[in-house]
Design a protein around this nucleic acid. Structure first.
Lengths: 217, 217
DNA sequence: GGTATAATCAAGTAATCGATTGAATACTAG
DNA sequence: CTAGTATTCAATCGATTACTTGATTATACC
């Protein structure tokens, strides 16, 4: 039964890990970190079916991460305590630190690898000045307004599918966004390639460009 | 593909959660939190097969929690960074806070429920003074030395199987340890009952006893 | 080169998990 | 009591995961 107490502890911690192993459950936790909510509200906010949401909530409850109270017709769930907030924070920090690079590689690999090959910053500037390439900024307008590459065109990633006609059909396009771990430019290049345009990706993002002492408009 | 950026983040965090969803992987992380180790060492320490250990390590690596370096014939793994230590700590705190109670219930249920019924603190003191019961402290000697119940006998839980002969055969024994969520006294009572002794469990542990203003030796 | 060892890969099976569906439960309002 | 709503339960199916086994790769030593 209790052959190895250490094993039991690990098994318990693994139960918590299992509770954190589903995107929906993490989203539920993030929502509950903000406020107590009913099952119905959570189902609507996450866009999952009621029964499904209920089952996920019960897994979280069994892991001791949330508690529920029934009031009238509704069951209101909330985080079990501040330690859970700390756990979510620690999870986010690890994710931020270590998954970005991995994801970038995965995405590179999944997409047409040759098509997404990045172009060095120094080379880009001289070719852009000569009008040989079009520089595309796929970040939101606010960020674009705060500073962008010289002569860059701003088409946010979500509008690119509708507005790609504004871009030259033959000339090479170099897309960039926030940085090496920002995925928007990957999506942009993949989309443009699909539409038959000639697109590449800038290796750096806006922060790196600025930091390297390159000109900003 | 990247329809919802938030969903992607949650999916990434869930990948970390999945890495934490196995007792073996958590044990591996705890071991790696202490020192860099080879696959062979880890396999021996956890008692799992080589290939199995290797696979678990690779899941941890894919989640960005550990990194490996090959030196000669061996591959040495270590934690990817301090954030992982923080994550393990947060996980442990949540487990300590919320799973203890659940586990206690489970253990109570699994064991002979009637046998583990606790005895109230006030009742114990008067009966112990009259010599009607033997009070057993199953904590490690250091903790016992730092303070224990009046007249208590100290037999650490791990020595109980060898030393239970020191306890009276007929008189009632009341075991206690660190607190209501400490499992050592459960094991002690279960073991003593199995050996034919008359054992019960003290509801409170040492901290609660002290806090209630009861005498301490 | 040939051998031994650490580690990984590959394939197969049993177990577990996740989403869906329809029914059951618990409560409110009339 | 009846109707209606929020939630949970139960059962199913497809997908994923864990462990085992045997083969393969990479490196060190003779």
């Amino acid at each position: 039964m209790s052959s190895n107490p250490k094993r039991e502890i690990f098994a318990n911690l693994a139960r918590i890990g299992t509770a954190l192993s589903s995107p929906i459950r993490i989203e539920l936790l993030e929502l509950l970190a903000q406020a107590e909510r009913s099952v119905e509200q959570l189902a609507a906010l996450t866009g999952t079916a009621m029964a499904n949401t209920s089952q996920h909530l019960q897994k979280l409850r069994q892991a001791g991460l949330i508690v529920g109270r029934k009031q009238g017709l509704y069951v209101y769930y909330r985080l079990a305590g501040d330690e859970v907030v700390g756990l979510l924070g620690a999870l986010g920090r690890v994710g931020e630190a270590y998954l970005a690079e991995v994801e970038q590689i995965v995405r590179l690999y999944l997409a047409q690898k040759d098509a997404l090959e990045p172009v060095p910053a120094a080379e880009l500037l001289s070719r852009a000045r000569k009008g040989m390439v079009t520089v595309l900024d796929v970040r939101p307008p606010q960020e674009f307004a705060a500073g962008h590459l010289p002569g860059a065109v701003n088409i946010p990633i979500h509008e690119l599918e509708k507005r790609f006609g504004e871009l030259p059909k033959r000339k090479e396009i170099v897309a960039y966004c926030r940085g090496p771990y920002c995925l928007m430019s990957y999506d942009a290049v993949a989309l443009l390639r699909k539409k038959g345009l000639k697109a590449r990706r800038l290796e750096a993002g806006m922060p790196e460009w600025r930091q390297a002492g390159m000109p900003v408009e």
